[in-house]
Amino acid sequence: MTLREIAMLTNPTAGKGRGARFRDAATERLRAAGVAVRALQGRDADEALDLAREAVSAGTEALVVVGGDGMVHIGVQAVAGTGTPLGLVAAGTGNDVARYFDLPRKDPVAAAERLLPGTTRTVDLARSGTQHFVTVLAAGFDAIVNERANKMTWPKGQMRYNIATLAELRTFEPIPYTLELDGVTHTLEAMLVAVGNGPSFGGGLRITEGAVLDDGMLDVVIIKPMSKPGLIRTYPKLFKGTHTTHPAYEHHLVRSVTVAAPGIVSYADGERFGPLPLTVECAPGALTVLA
């Protein structure tokens, strides 16, 4: 389809203010191409989601979000299962979803030009109750790191996660889990459990390396107990996905997983998702993306 009109939802503070600048540049390019752009901006995440849902209900041709994976997360809640395409002008810190679809991450005009042909791709989502996510559910050491990193004001970008990782390592101990993988119960201790719809999170950490967006399955990765020096040595391998050869790595391909562990608040798409236990299932073909 050729785009004629869209609703554009923006996080103006994304990427240290890139959100507002990228919105303006993308809007100018789209309007120059004859696309009607309706600008949406909530005062907080809840209002942003309400605006997005209203636009989808009103029949917008596409919902385009400007920001990082957090804005994608909001947009996904509005379009999941509706068939309304989701577009992305990446302006965040991690931008893993933009990586998935090889979308521009530094050029809003190029991102707008990718939207114009209206080319779409249908992919899966992961679903827990009424919530959905695109990337990875972090449910262990990675979630604890996310909690710390989100409370930090310095530094910005990936280095914040690196520093939070080192800080949490000082006191971290393996977590007792109960997992139900397609109905089979496993009791174990692990450093982390990650549930991937896609292969990476946190700005290119390929924890669920090999995850395919449209295979109707979830990738559950378990990192079994290992020494803290071993974890530090293995951490850089996450950026290339070469951690999969480590003896502590375990991988399961499932349609549904229940993750239970004491005191863990899970994260998905870089956002707080909910305390464990959680049941996550694959929602095949639930998302249409302008890509």
Rank of each mutant, 00 (worst) to 15 (best):
M1F: 15
T2Q: 11
E5K: 07
E5H: 12
T10S: 09
P12K: 04
G15I: 01
G15T: 05
R21W: 06
R23K: 15
A25G: 05
E28N: 11
V35G: 09
A36R: 14
Q41R: 15
L49I: 11
A55K: 05
A58L: 02
V66Q: 03
G68A: 06
D69N: 09
M71S: 12
H73D: 03
V79A: 08
P85R: 00
A90K: 05
G92R: 00
L103R: 02
L103F: 05
L103T: 01
L115C: 11
P117K: 11
P117D: 12
L125W: 02
A126F: 00
F133G: 04
F133S: 06
A139K: 04
T153I: 10
W154K: 14
W154A: 12
Q158I: 15
Q158S: 14
R160C: 09
T165K: 06
F172A: 13
G183T: 09
G183D: 11
T185R: 15
A190G: 06
M191Q: 14
M191E: 11
V193Q: 02
A194Q: 03
A194D: 01
N197P: 12
G198T: 13
P199M: 12
F201E: 05
G204M: 13
G204L: 13
V212M: 15
V212C: 13
D214F: 06
G216W: 14
L218T: 02
I223A: 10
K237Q: 15
L238H: 10
L238C: 07
H243T: 01
T244Q: 10
P247S: 07
A248T: 04
E250T: 11
H251L: 11
V254Q: 04
T258I: 07
V259F: 07
A260L: 07
A260Y: 03
V265Y: 09
A268K: 06
D269Q: 02
D269W: 02
L276C: 08
L276A: 08
L278E: 02
V280G: 02
V289K: 04
A291R: 11
